[in-house]
């Protein structure tokens, strides 16, 4: 359970709630039992299907019932049906799960069911070779991208939705141009720099991250991304350029632990890989001073800063 406040009901209130829930529980148990029995009996009827709709409406996490529902679709409802009818059946499934997603955007099983449906949309309505040969597929996958973007508007950090969006993009019958995709993630990052999920879709880019550094310097996402851009084997020029830029930012934000930590990291890289070309003494002195300050500024992680200091000592010996 997440984010549900603890309330201590009075004994009377508790009794009243139990009374109220009693009939709901009975109804739910009767429905589950009926469905599990039908499942055992290999009942693939329309009736059984309707029962699964009722139950999943109450409890979309009942994965066994989603499984059974798919079995009914395959072994019951789509038997002896035309492609058009099957397309309609799957479209109805997508509508049904859309409602479920709105109230339960983080339930894996719903996303999984949509995936299953999407992959089964038949070819048509046109015949092979015609423009509309994959018209159903195209519109189903386009619709899917629209749906997932709606959900991302509601919560830009829903990683299930991001994963699903990636899946949709990879599977679309007509691939979307990369430029559109870049525009989309840029928009999401600019709306909220801490949007790690959107960072994640990006390829390497220094400008964007430099921008973010100045706009939102307290956000770890930016600094991790920057470190990745710099990489593990950077030239002296690149390291010095980045240190200088961060130094400048530190001048404006003298308490920024992220600035200090990053300068330490890049300075250690300089000392490790380019010792012959830098002023070792001055750089060491500065790094030590920053590590000392970090221990004060950010005491929770003091042990890590001490270990970085030890690495520095080993490096110099």
């Amino acid at each position: 359970m997440h984010g549900v406040k603890r309330v201590k009901p009075t004994p009377q209130a508790l009794e009243a709630r139990k009374q109220k829930e009693r009939s709901k529980i009975q109804e739910f148990l009767a429905l589950s039992e009926d469905i599990l029995q039908r499942k055992k009996d290999n009942d693939f009827s329309e009736d059984a299907f309707k029962q699964t709709t009722r139950l999943l409406h109450v409890n979309p996490e009942f994965y066994t019932v989603w499984n059974y529902r798919r079995t009914i679709l395959v072994k019951g409802l789509s038997v002896n049906r035309t492609e058009e009818e099957i397309n309609k059946l799957l479209a109805d499934e997508l509508v049904m799960t859309m409602a479920a997603l709105k109230s339960h955007p983080k339930v894996y099983w719903i996303w999984n069911h949509r995936r299953w449906c999407l992959e089964r949309v038949p070819n048509g309505p046109g015949a092979e070779g015609e423009d509309t040969a994959n018209g159903w597929k195209k519109s189903a996958w386009d619709q899917e991208l629209y749906v997932v973007e709606k959900l991302l508007d509601a919560d830009a950090r829903n990683f299930l939705a991001w994963n699903y969006r990636r899946y949709v993009l990879a599977g679309m019958p007509v691939p979307r141009p990369d430029t559109l995709e870049l525009a989309y993630t840029s928009k999401k990052i600019q709306a909220n720099f801490s949007n790690f999920s959107a960072w994640h879709q990006r390829s390497k880019e220094f400008d964007l991250v430099r921008n973010a550094m100045y706009t939102d310097p307290d956000d770890q996402s930016v600094w991790v991304y920057h470190r990745w851009l710099v990489g593990t084997r950077a030239s002296r020029g690149l390291l010095e350029r980045e240190i200088e830029a961060i130094d400048e930012l530190l001048g404006e934000q003298p308490d920024s632990k992220w600035c200090m930590e990053s300068i330490v990291h890049y300075s250690v890289m300089l000392l490790k890989d380019h010792a012959a070309e830098v002023d070792v003494e001055q750089l060491t002195e500065k790094t030590r001073r920053l590590l000392g300050e970090l221990e004060v500024q950010d005491p929770f992680r003091r042990q890590r800063y001490r270990e970085l200091g030890e690495i520095l000592a080993v490096l110099l010996s």
Binding site: R157, F196, D219, Q220, S221, F300, R301, R304
Partner: peptide, 26 residues
Amino acid sequence: DTLGWWLAERQLPNGGLNGRPEKLED
């Protein structure tokens, strides 16, 4: 080193840990 850094930064000022940057502790 990188993962250790990322994990260590999951601790928030109230002492709790979050699961991703800029999220609540849990």
